[in-house]
Amino acid sequence: MGLKDFKVEVSKENILHNYQYLKKLRKKEIIAVVKANAYGHGIENIVSLLSKNGCEYFAVARECEAEKILKLNLKNINILILETIEDLNFLNQNRNVQMVINNFKELLFLLDNKVLTEQLHLKLDFGFGRNGIVEEDFIKLKKLILENDLKFKGICTHVFAADYEDMLIVERKFNEILLEVGKDRFEIIHMQNSAGVISIEGVGCTHIRCGTILFGLQEIGYYDPNIKRAFRLIGKVLDVKDLNNLKYIGYEKKEKLKLDENKKIAKVRLGYGDGFSKRGEGIVSIINNKKFKIVHISMDSSFILVDESVKEGDNIEIFYDLEDSIKYLKVPHYEFLSCINDRIERELI
């Protein structure tokens, strides 16, 4: 067997279904959030696919992610960087790159350095606590905008994923600010994240920001049955050994793992060196439509307790049941999927 036993298989059909469905649902253009390697789905493949199908806006967290998109040499796309850019020359050299302003001091700095406001999005923070211009600076912000007749590429905020009532409060306050300074000062207006796309209308907005939901990864409590999952982590069984003939499983003594006797151990070429955390020990995999527990994870390999039905070369899938994986790992799906690194190939099918 070759070196590429495992791969992340991504469904083009499901990605495009979600993209078209969400556009139609909210009657708005989409800013596709593709940070963290498109949440583990492969940033280059996803951006190329969506760009060919009409998506013109992509959001990332950092410059290094924007650089990956720029290297694709795609036409008619814009890249929005959600965090602060340290090298302002990056904006000057790439006019299709835009930046979110994350505090009032930063806004003043950018204006003093003659950064084009057509490359800037104001972000308002209504208590989310991550980034954005905070409410105590809103009076200064409104004064600055009105006295200098400033216009920006965009304005945005971020709604909370945990509380629907808070989402409505943010939506109301956001629109109050827009009315006070004038919506015509902003070409692009966006507030809904993936949970917000499902929950609220996004009154007054021109775009929706779709990250995890675009890939079929939905928040608990914010579920739409029309959204389709695109991600599969699949591979092959490298070999199978009789448990009775082994003293160690990887680096662990067999007795310490407390395994059943008269079983077999299957080895696969996937480990924490690939971003498959040791926290996954005990999680269930699927081989031949049967569930088998992963009992040990090393840097380059994992070991699975199997029965006589499993043979070398059989197909295996990890994270088959996302809800079960979330419960076991005690972290959201986008965390453990984003951790799978580039030693594992991403393939659009």
Rank of each mutant, 00 (worst) to 15 (best):
L3D: 10
K24C: 06
L141I: 02
F186R: 15
V134W: 05
G40I: 04
V240A: 12
D239G: 12
A36L: 05
L322E: 02
C205H: 05
L91K: 08
E67D: 14
E83W: 07
G42H: 02
R26A: 13
V8M: 10
L110E: 05
R232M: 05
E29R: 09
R343F: 02
L233S: 13
I101W: 03
A162K: 08
I77L: 04
L108I: 09
D314R: 07
N193A: 13
I69P: 00
K123Y: 00
E323Q: 15
G154W: 06
I316F: 11
M1Y: 01
V47Y: 14
Y251T: 12
F90D: 00
I294D: 03
I213P: 04
I15Q: 07
C210K: 04
I227T: 09
K263P: 00
K142I: 06
K114E: 01
K142T: 05
S309A: 12
E347M: 04
R209M: 12
S301C: 03
K228L: 09
K293T: 13
Y320K: 08
G235F: 01
C210V: 06
D87K: 11
K140C: 08
K114D: 06
I344K: 09
A266W: 11
L111R: 03
Y272Q: 00
N94D: 00
N315G: 11
M1C: 07
R185Y: 01
I31C: 08
D87E: 08
K143H: 10
R130F: 01
